[in-house]
Amino acid sequence: MAASTLRYGRLRVVSAVAVIGFLLTSCGGSSDASDEVRVSAASSLSLAFAALGSAFEALNPGVDVVLNIGGSSLLREQILEGAPVDVYASASTDTMAPIVDGGLSDGNATVFVRGFLAIAVPAGNPAHVTGLDDFGNEELLIGLCDVVVPCGAYARQVMSRAGVEPAVDTNEPNVRSLLTKIEAGELDAGIVYMTDVRSASGGVEGIEIPDAVNVAADYPIAVIVEGPNTVGGRAFVDFVMSGVGQEILAGFGFVTP
């Protein structure tokens, strides 16, 4: 008797855990409303695109802009695997290239905005970082984006232009996770987009990178031809390129190309 209840008990717990695990990790379903515009945008565009989305919705009642925010290359992989996306806004022309080359975009991608990089340090700059030279200091906790995402590739360009070999402690999967660690004070310094420093609400301070070594990040945008709502996607891209759209983007520190 004892043995059988024991086995039953184990099974019950194991299956309960499995069910809980499944419920927790499975994502919500998707709806197929035709008035949805699905926009995949790079992490560094998250706040600006939230504002652009709201403005676009205000101008087009009944239209819903659904944002899919992530690292540019992850978003690209999703689209290459057939994710139902109408617009793709990437943080580099390199990550956009396979989309255009693969015929997934409606024509060529357009550079809609440009951003520059900046050094980010925690509020109060506890490690007294003054510039790029500090990135070679083994004593400091230094974070960059991983080289496979645009902010990491740009950061390494800046480093090589400045002639500094960075003593990296972590290669973050995207710029938001890098900022989280800097804001928490766990990293002494990192290289992010200037726009991120501006939007980081006090937890992060920026230090300018000299123009001579700074890198201009071109942000391309494209309508995805296989998206469920290409008409809406095109309208959204037109809005981003418009004076109103560019003004919103400028408010977040982006520069019109």
Binding site: G71, S73, L74, E77, G143, D146, V148, V149, V168, D169, T170, N171, E172, P173, S177, T180, K181
Partner: peptide, 24 residues
Amino acid sequence: VTFAGNLAGETQTLPLAVFVALET
């Protein structure tokens, strides 16, 4: 990745390596 970060040879476990590889 959130607590320990991602550095090959230091904190990069197999799932983190998969994630980085997936991007390239």
